[in-house]
């Protein structure tokens, strides 16, 4: 294992310290329990809280700030955070308008957030993100939440900033989730520091199709082929799931898993945008980069969100976080 770390035990804490130090103008980091919360919060605004295992950076800590999250609770690498983190974060950032939890659909995340929610004594709702169409809609545990989570957080974050109440935020969040579909392909596994070796083996001419974001195997192994053919598979699954109308406006997000150069991500964007435009979809917004990562995994996911005017307006609204910033 080759990593820029001091020890497996201290990597998370030291990394969070660095994050807090680098962005002390917009966030603060609470140790034990660990959570990152926004400085200068607006009064009487629904508090948005997300979280999940570490190793997906900039998700979620990098999305705390004006116009997005009020707090993020990072667990250990690829391990859901514990309920006390969400509970303390909620108590710290709630200011009268209730709490909205944004949770990626994984057993661990769901259950730990659930326990926190049960203990919280203020109005709260949960938006469950399950945008990964590599699994059938009726999968026994539901579909996973992957790169679409950022889009939910951005759009609901802008609504909350604009004064939407808890019920409205929850409804909007569910709407974004229902308008969003993602799917990913991995060229390599990744190395969790505590494990010291890649989570799975993969040969030089294979890819894992339909992967989640925890370095686990995908739905199936396929031969490594051209980017266009891989994009076809991903985009087709998304298209068949969302069944967008002609002339539908959409946001296209190409998300790198961590070790794939931007050069390749833009190439994938070109291919995917072409695919959707040939189907009559109007790509009106783009986001290309490493946002929902799996440590040093190579590969990427494609996310499409069908956008209406309200969503577009919230997407464009000012945001100031470590990883996403515009208009401020």
């Amino acid at each position: 294992m080759k990593k820029l770390i001091n020890s497996v035990e201290s990597v998370l804490e030291e990394s969070l310290n660095g994050f807090a130090r680098a962005h002390s103008n917009i966030i603060q980091f609470n140790h034990q329990p660990n959570y990152v919360s926004r400085k200068n919060k607006s009064e009487n605004k629904v508090a948005l809280i997300s979280g999940g295992g570490a190793g997906h950076e900039p998700l979620h800590t990098g999305l705390v700030g004006k116009g997005m999250l009020d707090a993020a609770c990072p667990g250990q690498v690829f391990t859901s955070p514990t309920p006390d983190q969400m509970l303390m974060a909620a108590q710290a950032v709630e200011n009268g308008a209730g709490v909205l939890f944004i949770v990626k659909n994984y057993a661990g995340d769901v259950m730990n957030f659930e326990i926190a929610a049960e203990m919280l004594d203020c109005p709260h709702e949960t938006v469950l993100v399950n945008d990964d169409v590599s699994l059938p809609k009726d999968h026994s545990t539901g579909r996973r939440g992957v790169a679409g989570t950022l889009i939910v957080e951005k759009i609901v974050g802008a609504a909350a900033e604009a004064g939407a109440d808890l019920a409205t935020c929850k409804q909007l969040g569910d709407k974004v989730v229902n308008s969003t579909a993602s799917m990913g392909v991995a060229l390599t596994s990744c190395t969790v520091p505590a494990l010291g070796q890649p989570t799975f083996d993969i040969s030089d001419n294979e890819v894992e199709m339909g992967v989640g974001i925890h370095g686990e195997r995908g739905r199936e192994v396929m031969s490594l082929t051209t980017a266009d053919e891989l994009v076809q598979i991903l985009a087709k699954a998304i298209d068949e799931d969302l069944k967008p109308a002609k002339e539908q406006c959409a946001l296209l997000h190409i998300n790198g898993f961590g070790a794939t150069p931007l050069m390749e991500l833009y190439l994938v964007y070109d291919s995917a945008a072409q695919f959707f435009e040939e189907r009559g979809i109007k790509i009106v917004r783009s986001l290309v980069g490493n946002y929902t990562t799996s440590l040093d995994m190579a590969g990427c996911s494609i996310t499409l969100t069908l956008m209406d005017d309200e969503m577009l307006q919230y997407w464009d609204a000012p945001v100031h976080t470590a990883a996403l910033r515009w208009g401020i």
Binding site: P33, P81, T82, Y106, G108, I115
Partner: peptide, 15 residues
């Protein structure tokens, strides 16, 4: 267990 393990198993064994 609940506040140190995390993951699916942490919430389950904690519960």
């Amino acid at each position: 267990l609940m506040s140190t393990m995390g993951g699916a198993s942490g919430s389950l064994l904690g519960s």
